[in-house]
């Protein structure tokens, strides 16, 4: 440990940042540009648009389920190296994603991850007792619904393709996308 570990975290962060900038490893402009993009572009609206397209276009659904990164690229979310795998919910099979190791998550498509996704409780318990964890989100699945838990890594990230709600046959793609929630894309909610 070095002395700066005793500083308050904000000061430690600033000190690290200044040293990295001085070493030419990044710049204030690069950091600001990255954070601006994160705040303005990374959103569950992106994943929701992919879901709505998959609900309305069987060819796109096949692409999305066979090659998630390619499915994202076709909707304009290119350059992803998530190894994205999209897992479809049905009436009898439910999917939920977690990262037991830390917090891998398709941020570009779902936005910054919620605090609970990064919590020790969610990470440790989802793989052991998913039904109990989902109940804490208010999601009580029928006992005969199978639950598959997908544990994310830096090489494989997941997004749930929720089941299309009943009675939405008349809706246009944009209206369908508006039905898709962030938690629906993680699998901690139904639509």
């Amino acid at each position: 440990m070095t002395g700066h570990d005793d500083l308050p975290v904000a000061a430690r962060t600033r000190q690290l940042e200044e040293r990295l900038i001085a070493a030419g490893l990044t710049s204030d402009d690069e950091i600001d540009e990255f954070l601006t993009r994160l705040y303005t572009k990374a959103s569950p609206v992106n994943g929701a648009r992919m879901v709505a397209r998959a609900w309305t276009d069987p060819r796109y659904r096949d692409l999305l389920l066979s090659d998630g990164d390619a499915g994202a690229a076709e909707m304009g979310f290119g350059d992803l190296t998530y190894g994205l795998r999209v897992v479809p919910n049905t009436g009898s099979a439910h999917n939920v994603i977690v990262c037991t190791l830390c917090s891998c998550y398709p941020v570009s498509l779902l936005g910054p991850s919620p605090g609970w996704y990064k919590s020790f409780a969610y990470r440790s318990r989802t793989v052991r007792e998913p039904r109990a964890v989902l109940a804490e989100f208010g999601l009580a699945l029928p006992p005969d619904t199978g639950i598959t838990v997908w544990d994310s890594t830096s090489e494989a990230r997941y997004m749930v393709l929720p089941a299309r709600p009943d009675g939405t046959g008349e809706l246009a793609e944009d209206d369908l996308a508006a039905l898709v929630t962030r938690n629906g894309l993680i699998g901690t909610a139904l639509l």
């Binding site: 962060t13 940042e17 950091i31 990255f34 954070l35 910054p112 609970w116 919590s119």
Partner: peptide
């Protein structure tokens, strides 16, 4: 229990958290 109320809005509780993520 899972802290389900930690919705991630805002995504960072303080500016330094965002800077750490960016770094």
């Amino acid at each position: 229990p899972v802290p389900v109320g930690e919705s991630g809005d805002p995504p960072f509780a303080a500016d330094w958290e965002a800077r750490v993520y960016a770094l």
